[in-house]
Design a protein around this nucleic acid. Sequence first.
DNA 1: ACAATTACGCACCTTTTGGTGCCTATGAGT
DNA 2: ACTCATAGGCACCAAAAGGTGCGTAATTGT
Lengths: 123, 123
Amino acid sequence: MAEPNVYDSTCSARDALELIASKWAMLILPALSAGPMRNSALLRKIGGISQKMLTQTLKDLERNGLVIRHDMQTVPPHVEYRLSALGNSLSEALIALDRWAERHSGDLDAARERFDAGRTEGV
Amino acid sequence: MAEPNVYDSTCSARDALELIASKWAMLILPALSAGPMRNSALLRKIGGISQKMLTQTLKDLERNGLVIRHDMQTVPPHVEYRLSALGNSLSEALIALDRWAERHSGDLDAARERFDAGRTEGV
DNA sequence: ACAATTACGCACCTTTTGGTGCCTATGAGT
DNA sequence: ACTCATAGGCACCAAAAGGTGCGTAATTGT
């Protein structure tokens, strides 16, 4: 327990990894790095996410101290989400990943095409 | 299509993100960054992974050009996996994430405890 | 008076993910 | 002659992820 190691499945670092290795967390945290956002704004910004997954992921991130939820206690509801310091430090690493994905998605596409073509052309 | 954006669910960068936002890819790629490895070595190094998931993930990574599979064509089989240049550039970002997880898993644990305690203590 | 808005909760259902056990082939060790 | 190790494939099954539709409470706009 002294030296957390992600390769050890019993280590809590593994749990941490699973939390952040989520498609939605990888988008929500970087989205919040620009500043606090409301539910509806996140819903608009992150294409393809459902209300359910947004709420669920935000709650999970809040529970783990990465996101801070601020409920204005008004009706109709006004709730803002922002990064904690911890969340902010993580989102830097996630932004790097997102950028990598944006920059290299073309390479992946090309590799996939090559691979699949090779498979059908036989030996 | 000119500017790939991960927030756009129809963009191929999103597919790229989903590929790398996988628990196992996040461990396999960094593991390979130390040098080529055999199936059995990876199985030993990465605690908790099953043979099935290892094979499956490696195949997916190979298909997308991140990992190169080198089959020695011997019996008993000897197969080595190593990172491509593309895979290597990605693994740097992943290693940063793994390290974050190792360094901050304690913070996450603490936050979770606090959160859950608050929930049970009532209003 | 009536609809829309906001940020969800809940239940139901489908899809995906992942685990397990069983199978292959051959050469090396006993 | 027999077993072990290697790198998987394949089929079956359990579990988890995720989508959709419905309800909610009060206030603002028409």
